[in-house]
Amino acid sequence: MAHVIGLSEKRQADAALVVTEAATNILKYAGHGEITVRNYDEGGTQGLEIIVLDRGPGIANLTSAMKDGFSTGGSLGAGLGTIQRHATHFDLYSVAGKGTALLAQIANASTALADRFQVGVKATPKSGQDVCGDAWGVRRVNGKLWATLLDGLGHGPMAAEASNRAVGVFLQADPADQPADVLRRAHQGIKSTRGAVMAVAMFDADQRVLSFAGVGNIVGIVTGGDEAQHLISTDGTVGYNMRTVRPSEAPWTKGSVFIATTDGLSTRWNLTRHPGLVQCHSSLIASVLHRDFARDADDATIIVVKAC
Results as ranks from 00 to 15, higher is better:
Gly156Arg: 12
Asp206Gly: 06
Phe170Lys: 04
Gly195Tyr: 05
Asp151Met: 08
Arg208Thr: 07
Gly143Asp: 08
Gln172Cys: 11
Lys144Val: 06
Gln207Ala: 14
Asp181Gly: 09
Ala159Lys: 12
Lys144Arg: 15
Arg194Cys: 08
Leu153Glu: 10
Val182Phe: 02
Asp151Val: 09
Gly154Asn: 07
Val167Lys: 15
Gly156Leu: 13
Leu171Phe: 05
Asp204Ala: 13
Leu171Val: 02
Ala166Val: 10
Gly156His: 14
Gly154Cys: 08
Val138Glu: 11
Gln178Asn: 09
Ala162Ile: 06
Val209Gln: 08
Leu210Met: 15
Leu171Tyr: 03
His155Asn: 15
Ala173Lys: 07
Phe212Val: 04
Asp174Ser: 10
Leu149Lys: 04
Leu171Ile: 04
Gly195Arg: 02
Pro179His: 03
Gly168Asp: 15
His155Asp: 12
Ile190Gln: 09
Ala196Leu: 11
Gly152Glu: 11
Lys144Thr: 11
Leu153Lys: 07
Met202Ile: 05
Ser163Asn: 09
Ile190Ala: 05
Asn164Leu: 12
Glu161Gln: 13
Glu161Met: 14
Ala205Leu: 01
Val197His: 01
Ser163Leu: 02
Ala205Arg: 04
Arg184Asp: 05
Gln188Tyr: 07
Phe170Pro: 03
Ala199Pro: 03
Arg165Gln: 15
Asp181Cys: 05
Pro175Tyr: 08
Ala201Trp: 00
Met202Asn: 06
Ala147Pro: 06
Ala201Ser: 09
Asp204Trp: 15
Ala213Leu: 09
Phe170Asp: 03
Ala180Glu: 14
Lys144Cys: 14
Ser211Leu: 11
Ser211Val: 10
Val182Gln: 05
Ile190His: 05
Met198Lys: 02
Gln188Ser: 13
Leu183Val: 00
Val200Pro: 00
Ala196Asp: 06
Lys191Gln: 12
Leu145Ala: 11
Ala160Thr: 09
Val141Phe: 04
Met202Asp: 03
Val138Tyr: 02
Ser163Met: 04
Gly156Phe: 13
Leu150Ala: 15
Ser211Trp: 01
Gln178Met: 12
Arg194Asp: 08
Lys191Leu: 04
Thr193Arg: 00
Ala199Phe: 05
Ala205Glu: 07
Pro175Arg: 07
Pro179Lys: 02
Trp146Arg: 10
Asp177Ile: 00
Asp204Arg: 07
Gln207Asn: 13
Gly168Asn: 15
Val200Ala: 04
Phe212Thr: 08
Gly214Ser: 15
Asp181Val: 00
His187Lys: 02
Arg185Ile: 00
Gln178Val: 06
Trp146Glu: 11
Asp151Pro: 03
Leu210Phe: 08
Val209Ala: 06
Lys191Val: 05
Ala196Gln: 02
Ala199Tyr: 05
Met158Ile: 08
Ser192Tyr: 06
Val138Thr: 13
Pro175Ser: 09
Asp174Pro: 04
His155Ala: 11
Glu161Gly: 04
Arg185Asp: 11
Ala213Met: 11
Met198Tyr: 13
Glu161Ala: 15
Val182Asp: 01
Leu183Glu: 11
Val200Arg: 04
Gly195Gln: 02
Gly152Ser: 06
Ala186Ile: 01
Gly143Ser: 08
Leu171Ser: 06
Ala196Glu: 07
